[in-house]
Amino acid sequence: MKCIEINELSKVIAGKIILDKVTFHVDEGEIFGLLGPSGAGKTTIMNILCGQRKATSGQTIINGIKSEMLPDDVLKNIGIMFDDYSLYDRLSCFDNLLLITDILKIDKNEIFNVLRKVGLEDSKDKAVSKLSKGMKQRLLFARAIIHKPKLLFLDEPTSSLDPSTTLLIHNVIRDLKKEKTTVFLTTHNMHEAHKLCDNIALLSNGKIVEYGNPDEICLKYQSELEVALTFDDGRIEKLFLTNKNIDILYNYLKNNCVKSIHSSDVNLETIFIKLTGKGLK
């Protein structure tokens, strides 16, 4: 069942086309990744889906309801983690989450549960101004999930984070998926998208250039297996493994001059570069 549907979504600001007839959908309970470089329009799509911005044309539908007409009880079942939705610096982690539980009438014990999930239980009384960037990011994430939303929007949830914090957030996202939460995240980290997402869309200059399962997309663009050989003299040579080149490879190995062999599988970044001529960062 479709949780999110985006049909021919366009957004124009001051004559500049930000989104150009974007169309895709997100199924219920899946982790969906929207990839693209900075300025591609990822956050704009999220803002339109959350009803924070109006589309110029097209439709955005969440659980069968137009996103600009979502009733309050549906909106309260949505969790959002935007980079510019900050925290109250002078208040503690606990008090920042207490505000949310008070507004949404959630049991205060959920604060302790969610702080434990994101590894901030020892910092619950620390003022936000004294937290590191990674800890603030975790607290923002905790704030987004404290009310156990059915739909979660995460705007670059692991940007600028260290690997261990990134892994922690990924694990929590996977746990949320087990609880049938639909996760819509934006990122320009193709490794993250490939590891985490069931389906992805590649966005460039406001247009979707590719859409589908990450593995299937990589397979689609993997025409031939390529290997990179590093020789003893430091030389690097790339070979597509055709029948002819296998004989060449065999000779190299027989002459014992190959230091290492690496396979150069196609990945989302190389696919993006191939399709758009520019990288994901």
Binding site: Q52, D72, L75, K76, I80, D84, Y85, S86, L87
Partner: peptide
Amino acid sequence: SGTLSMLRMLR
């Protein structure tokens, strides 16, 4: 700081 937008999202 964006906290006002966050409150608006909470309706």
